[in-house]
Simulated scan of single mutants.
Amino acid sequence: MPKAQETVLEIDLSALTHNFNYLKSKIQPQTKFLAVIKAFAYGSDSVEVAKHLEKLNVDYFAVAYAKEGVVLRDAGVTTPIIVLHPQPINFEILIDRCLEPSIYSANVLNEFIKTAEAKNQKHYPIHLKFNTGLNRLGFINSDIPSIVSKLNTSASVKVVSLFSHLAASEDNNELNFTELQIKRFKSIADNFESKIDYKPWLHLCNTSGVLNYPEAHFDMVRCGIGLYGFGNSVEEDKNLKPIACLKSVISQIHKIDKDETVGYNRAYTSKGFEKSATIPIGHADGINRIYGKGNGFVIINGEKAPIIGNVCMDMIMVNISDIECKEGDEVIIFNSDYSASHLSASAKTISYEIITAVSQRVKRVFLE
């Protein structure tokens, strides 16, 4: 790979293909595969990721908000897209752009039917979200009679799928709770199907659910973090390839005498003669202030260089006292060898947070 001359996020599309094929190998051929590409495809690039996955014959996409789906449609993406958290104010544009809403409450159902009827829709596809224990969004089992009653009053919509979301499918200590969620979801599906004359698809599993609960794959699975190279466990991380490499360069090297300070609020004081390197990436690029004051690190010529002082908006400073390097040398924030999981663990957070935080002002470079 070419050496960085500025801050860039390299996206390895061959790694994306590997992850997709690995996750597909865990499900039955007839089970549909939904790729979650919300949050700019977990901080990479939703359009490029979607177009690549379309070439691999993905069945569905999911985004969080209508605006994210509009971006994909504007780019020519034609695969069906579920909007996981739609707001009624966006229902008209959602229909205009052929986006399929997750319906999670009576109010949202009523408002969407009202909009669909006003736009003369017939059997517009919707997806019903049920709460089985995450307690975030969703109907509950006892809501089903009123849902069916409402659906029977209008031909404007048709339920394509029923789904729920596992709360702790990656945690072996929560095995009993996950199995309870699966049991609840089956009961919901049986109840709903007994009251209508067709069978919607069922989907419950996220990446960890796909890997840990094959009995719960149902008709479709929804994979997000796994596509981007993280399996939520050390064992599964070995089977996946992080698709993103965030790298930068050394802008300047400083020699610092004992008791000199570095950065805003004089947050770091040198313990002796030291050297620091300034790197053009900061909290406006996604390196949160939590990584400052020695909590985070970068890699320079294969060595860890701790971040010293406070993270600035556009820059970080790192200690290079024991590293042979020069201005213009490449700096790795995370890649396949020093993954976002390692960096995030140093600050007691998770890989999701750092990869989705990479600012869109950071240049994206795509590698086949």
Rank of each mutant, 00 (worst) to 15 (best):
M1K: 05
E10Q: 13
D12W: 13
K24A: 13
F40A: 09
S44A: 04
S44M: 08
S46Q: 01
E48P: 02
E48N: 02
F61E: 06
L72F: 02
D74P: 06
T78I: 03
P86I: 11
N90D: 10
E92T: 10
R97M: 15
C98R: 13
L99D: 03
L109T: 12
A116K: 07
K119L: 11
P145I: 09
L151T: 08
H165N: 08
N172S: 14
I182T: 02
K183H: 03
K183I: 00
F185K: 04
S187V: 05
I196S: 07
D197L: 09
D197A: 08
D197N: 00
D197S: 05
H203T: 12
L204T: 07
F218L: 04
M220E: 08
L227F: 00
P242L: 03
L246N: 01
I250T: 10
D257P: 01
Y264F: 14
S270Q: 09
K275S: 12
A277Q: 00
T278I: 03
I279V: 06
P280L: 06
H283G: 12
I287W: 00
G292E: 12
E303P: 07
G309L: 08
V311M: 03
C312S: 14
M313I: 14
M313P: 14
I320F: 01
I320R: 04
E324F: 04
